[in-house]
Amino acid sequence: MKDKIKWKKRDTIGWLVMVPTLILFAFFVWEPLIENIRLSLHSAVGYEIKEFVGFENYIKVLNNPTFIKAFKNTFSYTLWSLAIGFIVPIILGILISETVHLKGFFRTGIYFPNIVPGLATVWIWSYFFIPGKTGVLNIMLSKIGIDAQAWLTNPKWTIPLIILTMTWKGAGATALIYMANISGISPDLYEAATVDGAGIWKRIRHITIPSIAGIGKTMMILQIISVFQIMYEPMVMTNGGPNGASVSLMMLMYQYAFRDFNFPAAAALSVMICIILVILSGLYMKLTKSSEE
Rank of each mutant, 00 (worst) to 15 (best):
D196A: 04
H206R: 12
R205M: 11
A173E: 12
M219T: 07
R203V: 00
S246Q: 04
T238C: 05
A173H: 09
D188R: 14
I221E: 03
M179D: 10
I185Y: 03
T218E: 04
G214N: 15
F228L: 05
I182M: 15
Y190N: 07
I212L: 06
K217S: 11
Q229M: 11
T174D: 08
G199M: 08
A175L: 11
N243C: 01
M237Y: 00
M179S: 09
G216I: 05
S246V: 02
E191T: 07
L249H: 04
L249Q: 01
A198W: 01
A245W: 03
M231Y: 15
G199Y: 00
K202V: 01
N239Q: 14
D188L: 10
M219K: 10
A192V: 12
A213C: 05
I225D: 02
S186V: 12
A171P: 05
I200G: 13
D196C: 06
V236T: 12
A175Y: 06
P187D: 11
K217I: 13
F228Q: 02
H206K: 13
K169D: 04
Y190W: 08
I221K: 06
I230V: 14
S248M: 13
Y232P: 08
T208Y: 04
N181H: 12
S248A: 13
M219I: 15
S211R: 02
A180Y: 09
Y178V: 13
G241Q: 07
Q223M: 13
M219P: 09
K202R: 15
E233I: 02
G199Q: 05
H206M: 11
Y232S: 13
L249E: 00
I225N: 04
K217C: 05
M220K: 05
Q223G: 14
K217L: 14
N243T: 05
I230D: 02
S211D: 05
P242R: 06
Q229F: 07
N243D: 07
V195M: 14
A192Y: 09
